[in-house]
């Protein structure tokens, strides 16, 4: 059989040269056509990840949908009055042809009219967004706590002051400065409920490399499991605990201490009488609570 087979194919080739040529040509066309499409698909799949420094215009659909909806026409870019938006060329940090902006270069000015959304022909920029404060272009993250001047104990506050949602999207949280032990640190803290991701804070950060950066929300934000419930929120919602009063058990070594005082090393040296908080103690023996049954 194995000897006959090529012979018969040759025979066939002799008898039907046109048909063979046709089929070979068709297979070649189909093969190379599909290969090229596959290559483009692979390239696109690999480069579809949105780079961290590329933010979408306000109202952009979630990235998955956006990549199907955006025609890459640049009408939003043309109608941006501040030249914030750009269309990505191959090699830029966003999928080819799609609009993005780099917060550190030109942040979004959050126009009240949102002129970039209006010309979008497909709705890739969702016209349902009418209040720019509801935009979620990204989320600011104070990414470098080692170099942020406020974390170093200085009063820079620039990110806080330039924020269009001042006092809401970024607040300054007071905290004791352990290093100097006598000053306060005012730590810029971002609140996702108000941050639009406009990028003003990143653009204004006085450091050579911004300590606060606006990232695409998918990179910036974690997500609780769907089943998580916060006890204190549930209690408030229902006007009381859902599982009744809880049995409170004493913690060894902390009996009789004021509520919230969890210091164990301030324990008395020998007898059972506790010194008043703040009174000097000679304990210093770490975790030995000296509790005796």
């Amino acid at each position: 059989m194995s000897v006959e087979k090529p012979a018969s194919t040759q025979e066939e080739a002799r008898l039907f040269p046109a048909r063979r040529k046709f089929l070979a040509g068709l297979a070649g066309a189909a093969g190379s056509g599909c290969l090229m499409a596959l290559g483009a698909g692979l390239y696109a799949t690999q480069s579809r990840a949105l780079a961290a420094q590329a933010l979408r215009p306000p109202g952009a659909l979630p990235e998955e949908e956006f990549l199907a909806a955006c025609t890459r026409c640049g009408l939003c870019v043309r109608d941006c009055p501040y030249d914030t938006l750009k269309l990505a060329a191959p090699g830029d940090p966003a999928p080819t042809g799609t609009p993005y902006f780099t917060a550190r270069d030109i942040p979004c000015e959050m126009c009240e009219e949102i002129p970039c959304i209006k010309p979008c022909p497909t709705g890739a920029l969702n016209p349902a967004l009418t209040d720019i404060a509801d935009a979620r272009m990204g989320l600011a993250v104070l990414i470098d706590q080692e170099n942020c001047l406020n974390f170093l104990g200085l009063r820079c506050d620039v990110c806080y002051r330039v924020c269009p949602a001042i006092g809401q999207a970024i607040t300054l949280e007071k905290q004791h400065n352990i290093r100097s032990d006598r000053h306060a640190m005012l730590l810029p803290t971002v609140h996702s409920a108000h941050c639009t991701g406009c990028g003003k804070c990143e653009a204004a950060c006085v450091l050579t490399e911004a300590a606060i950066k606006v990232l695409p929300v998918s990179l910036a934000q974690g997500k609780l499991g769907e089943h998580y419930r916060k006890g204190w929120e549930e209690r408030e919602k229902h006007g009381g605990s859902l599982i009744g009063d809880q049995l409170e058990l004493p913690v060894r070594g902390l009996e009789g201490k004021p509520h919230g005082d969890s210091r164990v090393k301030d324990d008395p040296p020998s007898d059972a009488s506790y010194p008043e908080p703040g009174q000097p103690s000679d304990a210093g023996t770490g975790l030995n609570s000296r509790w005796k049954p």
Binding site: A29, A30, S32, G33, C34, M36, A37, L38, A40, G41, Y43, A44, T45, S47, R48, E64, L67, A68, C70, T71, R72, P90, P95, T96, G97
Partner: peptide, 22 residues
């Protein structure tokens, strides 16, 4: 024509405008 069909198939399977990358 095969490539044309391929671009539609790629768009359908990836859910993105694959051909517009290139």
């Amino acid at each position: 024509y095969w490539l044309l069909a391929g671009t539609f198939a790629a768009a359908a399977t990836t859910g993105a405008l694959t051909w517009e990358w290139v």
